[in-house]
Amino acid sequence: MIRVKWSLLLIVAAVACGAAVDRADRAERAASGMNGTAQDTVGPAAPPGEPARAFPSPMRPVADIVAPRWSDEDDRDDVGEFARVVRLAKIGRGQRIADIGAGDGYYVTRLSPVVGATGQVYGQDIMPDYLALLQRRVRREGMRNVQVVRGDAHDPRLPAASVDVAIMIHMYHEIEQPFALLWNLATAMRPGGRLVILDLERPTYGHGTPPSLLRCELAAVGYRQLSFTKTAPSEYVAIFTAPDSTARPTPASISTALSASPCRAPGGD
């Protein structure tokens, strides 16, 4: 019962935030004459990778995707979230960054000036409504170094060897097929590329990821942890090196290894 109440509270808060975004977006579209049709359509940036069926399913709940942003942008700026992630991830001018699960663009709009004209930002998501919001925001703010990309739940659909740093902000627990997504993401990573995950130390049904579970799932695909930083009482930033796409475990070997030693949430959540 406590678990259900907690999940409902999270969903209500996120839906309220999403409703505010939707109202603002409708007002903007009405003022600009935009009708949200073909001009906002975006697609993948790469051919399909390995299918989801080639990988085992995670042995833990998957949280629902309920809103295009985690919380109010001003509040996040006030606590220094973006600046802290950029510093820990060592993101700078000229780099190519992928925001996986970009929503309506909190990180994308702030990353664009950080990487500059010689850099590239991929704003990737799987939700059509969120992609439309992001596409319009990118166009409105004139961010020429941003490409909006529609991915699949198991595949980011990013160009091969195109990404220096991929970030996943408050969304890892929403990934239906983490092993496939991580495997396909490795194809898009440049040698030495880093994956940066910001999440909460909560069960996945409570919109967080226990660190031990996170480490297990990433290690199964060949990712190696570089650092783990507590950024708030229940928040952390974990940074991993992506495996070389030619040396990562095969889908079959991942399935075999996880069958023998599955990644389980602490306490069986």
Rank of each mutant, 00 (worst) to 15 (best):
M59F: 12
M59H: 15
M59V: 11
M59G: 06
R60F: 13
P61V: 08
P61N: 04
P61G: 05
V62P: 00
V62D: 04
V62K: 01
V62A: 02
V62F: 05
D64Y: 09
D64L: 13
D64T: 07
I65C: 09
I65Y: 14
I65R: 05
I65G: 05
I65M: 07
V66E: 06
A67S: 15
P68S: 15
R69W: 06
R69P: 03
R69G: 01
W70P: 02
S71G: 15
S71D: 14
S71W: 12
D72I: 06
E73N: 15
E73D: 12
E73M: 14
D74Q: 13
D74H: 14
D77W: 09
D77S: 06
D78Q: 09
V79T: 13
V79K: 10
G80D: 13
F82T: 03
A83V: 11
A83Q: 14
R84T: 12
R84C: 08
V85G: 00
V85I: 13
R87F: 12
R87Q: 15
A89L: 13
K90Q: 11
K90Y: 07
K90D: 12
I91F: 02
I91T: 00
I91S: 00
G92I: 05
G92S: 11
G92H: 09
G92M: 10
R93L: 14
R93T: 14
G94R: 03
G94H: 03
Q95H: 12
Q95V: 05
R96C: 13
R96A: 13
R96W: 08
I97H: 01
I97T: 01
A98C: 09
A98I: 00
A98Q: 05
I100D: 00
I100S: 00
G101Y: 01
G101P: 02
G103S: 03
G103H: 02
G103I: 05
G105V: 06
G105N: 05
G105R: 05
G105L: 06
